[in-house]
């Protein structure tokens, strides 16, 4: 069963075409990594999946909902799609626990007690139970990102989108965040991850998509794609990033 179906997706910013005819399907429980050089359209693609960007043409089906349909309730659809950002984007005026419980309380009508229990369980899962009453600014980057993951999970999404979740972190913080994502993968969460962590892509992802210049150049099993890329562009990209 495919949970995401993208057909002939195109996206322009003014005159420039950033996504040029992207078609892709993602199955339930699949973990897909998106890699590619800077400016290739990875973030734009990801943000189209929950309609943070308006697309120019094409269709995007997520959980059976046509995301680009103007007549349907995009806010409802978005509840089923969790998103984690490079810059965490936690709400600074709320405590860690409130960051997690706000959406379940306001959008799902959960009672505070119920939501708090859920929030604490999620914090335990990301290893930050003792930070429940801290404010985001009192946490390290890695801790903030784990809270952001917990916040997204609190809406019990069917799929999670990650846009370079570890790129803004100090190297020693990266491991904890990747571990949380690994655990999620093991539990069977469907995930689309834009990342520069090639090791993670190789070990955790079921499929790697290589994007360049607004196209999907090549996709496949990471073990195959990393060791034996078909396209010259993939090869030259990989040789650059794997060296460093």
């Amino acid at each position: 069963m495919s949970i995401v179906q993208v057909k002939n997706l195109k996206k322009h910013y003014g005159q420039t075409e950033v996504l040029k005819d992207i078609s892709v399907e993602i199955s339930e429980k699949e973990v897909v990594c998106v890699i590619g050089p800077s400016g290739s359209g990875k973030s734009t693609f990801l943000r189209c999946l929950n309609r943070l960007e308006e697309i120019t043409s094409g269709t995007i089906l997520v959980n059976g909902h046509e995301m680009t349909d103007n007549n349907s309730d995009i806010n409802k659809f978005r509840q089923e799609v969790g998103m984690v950002f490079q810059q965490f984007n936690l709400f600074p005026h709320k405590t860690v626990l409130q960051n997690i419980t706000l959406a379940p309380i306001k959008l799902k009508g959960k009672s505070k007690t119920e939501a708090d229990a859920l929030g604490m369980a999620l914090l335990e899962k990301v290893g930050l139970k003792e930070k429940a009453n801290s404010y985001p600014s009192q946490l390290s980057g890695g801790q903030q990102q784990r809270v952001a993951i917990a916040r997204a999970l609190a809406m019990e999404p069917k799929i999670m989108l990650f846009d370079e979740p570890t790129s803004a972190l100090d190297p020693e913080m990266v491991g904890d965040v990747l571990q949380v994502m690994k655990d999620l993968a093991t539990e069977g969460m469907t995930m689309v991850i834009v990342t520069h962590e090639m090791g993670f892509a190789r070990d955790v992802c079921d499929r790697v998509i290589f994007m360049d210049g607004g196209y999907i150049v090549e996709e496949g099993d990471p073990k195959v794609l990393f060791t034996n890329p078909k396209h010259e562009r993939t090869r030259s990209f990989l040789s650059k990033v794997l060296q460093s």
Binding site: L52, K76, R78, N89, A103, L107
Partner: peptide, 14 residues
């Protein structure tokens, strides 16, 4: 910051 709006909208807030 624009990221605040994006985070909120991505959770499903109008």
């Amino acid at each position: 910051d624009k990221g605040q709006t994006e985070a909120s909208r991505s959770l499903g807030f109008s």
